[in-house]
Design a protein around this nucleic acid. Structure first.
Lengths: 145, 145
DNA sequence: CAGCATCCAAGTTGATACTG
DNA sequence: CAGTATCAACTTGGATGCTG
């Protein structure tokens, strides 16, 4: 297991010239890993979800995703655009007007992302409690040592 | 918007002494951000999903999550345990035997995570195509410049 | 407004060695 | 087996200044 360095063909792929390819994030060299990292990374996910409510311009996005720097936003947008999650639309005008919009694929990703985020947010009270238990338990262990 | 530096109480929270608290990953200081990062970060998600098939021991996990170092695995496990996503179970024995298991909350997170991963993996062919389009378009733009 | 280039501080990562 | 400790290499992120 996990000797795969890139996507491999399935054993069941029919020999019709269009071999079925399987992608697996668990495999070190699978191209799905970088894409997952763009989607779930520190900023990518927030940028995607911010676009769920409607198209936004660069600086509007920057305001929406609290704390992101110009550089990181540009970097995230490039990666998302390259992966086909986001489309960059330039409207010739002065001042320049550039809008970012989710693709269909991007929307699908956002749906799933929002379910995950919603679930985590909804359980944060429990998380906070768990953290307290963990911290006091560790403090006691250290005191007892 | 986004002036929130920590979780805030909702405007509609009844004054019953148990104020409803809203968590929002978009807010810079919200405790849900670090938790989301543990869940979606480079290793956290893979570790969680690896545990979906059953409890695993430290070194078994290490083999399963291809490419993770000892240090990163230990670090990820600590964070996940502290957030209440994973339980660490020590079975006194020689040699030492420590198993990691998902909590109920952890399982819920994994479900959502798997939907996201599955969706992305299932669309990787399109991603690869998008990347090629993007790269050749950029190459042309540079050549024309 | 939209964004790139550069520099530098700070954080992250991974090998390696060692402990209980 | 199940980790911790340490250190060097690499990556990240942000502030700043500039272009179209």
């Amino acid at each position: 297991m996990n000797t795969m360095t890139t996507a491999k063909t399935t054993p069941t792929a029919e020999d019709d010239g269009l071999e079925e390819v399987v992608f697996d994030v668990f495999a070190r060299g699978c191209p799905s890993r970088p894409t997952m990292e763009h989607v779930t990374g520190r900023w990518g996910g927030l940028v995607l979800v911010a676009l769920a409510d409607g198209d936004l311009r660069f600086n509007a996005l920057r305001r929406r995703v609290d704390g992101i720097s110009e550089k990181m936003l540009a970097q995230a947008l490039h990666a998302l655009e390259r992966d086909g999650l986001v489309v960059r639309e330039v409207k010739q005008a002065i001042p320049p007007n550039v809008e970012y919009r989710l693709t269909e694929f991007g929307s699908g990703v956002v749906e799933r992302l929002q379910e995950l985020i919603g679930f985590v947010e909804g359980n944060m009270a429990g998380v906070l409690a768990a953290q307290q238990r963990y911290d006091t338990a560790k403090a006691n262990a250290e005191a007892g040592a």
